[in-house]
Amino acid sequence: MTEPTMLSKEVQILESTAPGATKRPRGGALSLSPWADYAFRRAGGVLLSVVLLVVVTFFMVPLIPGDPAVAVAGADATTEQIEAIRNSLGLNDPLYVQFISYVGGLFTGDLGESFAYSTSVSQIIATKLPFTAELAVLGIILVLLVSVPAGMLVGILTRGGRKKWLDVSFGMLTGFFQAVPQYVVSTMLVVVFAIILKVLPAAGAASLSALILPVIGLSIAPICSIARVVRRETSTVLEQDYLRTARGWRLPSVRLYARHALPNLLTTALTLAGLILAGMLGGAIIVENVFNWPGLGREIVTAIVNKDYPVIQGIILVLGFLAIVLNLLVDVILGLIDPRTLGGKSNG
């Protein structure tokens, strides 16, 4: 890769997260299989990320101004009542004591008790996460199903500077949908499909059809950004020597593109999709707000308003942990598609 091909933020993110880009094989490790080496190399990174996540969230969250005890006790509570609540919540213990007991709890899956409701944080997350996950998983499936074929098709049709009009209109269209904020798109979807056409429910998570609008609202911008990346990668792959080799075999177009070009695009598309899925799990806040969807995003906004530290910490931890796991999962899938990404011998 030469530098002029590194052109957009998306591609940049991809190229930087492409496994093997920054990691160098550790010399001297006895090599059982590429996978064993790989697992060994990754384990340390994953562990470090988790530790970092726990420490940062624990110490950042209490920086939110305002006294959670006041929030729990209510505006007209007396100073004694508030002090009693502070004691019972453990807020008067030194910070390191609170940290140790929190970390201790983590090992047993205990994320603490919500200040605002008398339920455990894990309970709250367990009821809210499925709603968010449902949106995010369906969203990413939709994103991949639409953006990869669309991006490839445009990349093939405009290869080497052909069909300028298509290139321009594709750029305009995808740019437009990336520029419209998610909450505007979502509101427009509600207005058109729920209010005017009355074909889909406007809000809530009562039925399966209630999923359609939030999923679309969540997916439109990522579809555009991945489609752009896939398009750009397609035009790069189509100029590679190995594609000339495949052309020399005079393969039918479908086989040429699906078998010989697609696997080389997937590395980029999937790396980005992993980041976007992690972002969707956390970033569904907006869509959940518009559609009144009972997921984690709305819960964390409520928790921030209520100064409900354990809930905020719990949600941040769970989302961060999911992001780390997803990253790892994407890398493993990439390793299966293209073993070079496991690092080691070839680095480009």
Partner: peptide
């Protein structure tokens, strides 16, 4: 940096905005 990039940035900015 790598760990921070993987984290959903909207949640991160929400937290900072709250602080």
């Amino acid at each position: 940096i790598e760990a921070a990039v993987a984290y959903p940035s909207l949640i991160f900015s929400l937290l900072i905005a709250a602080i």
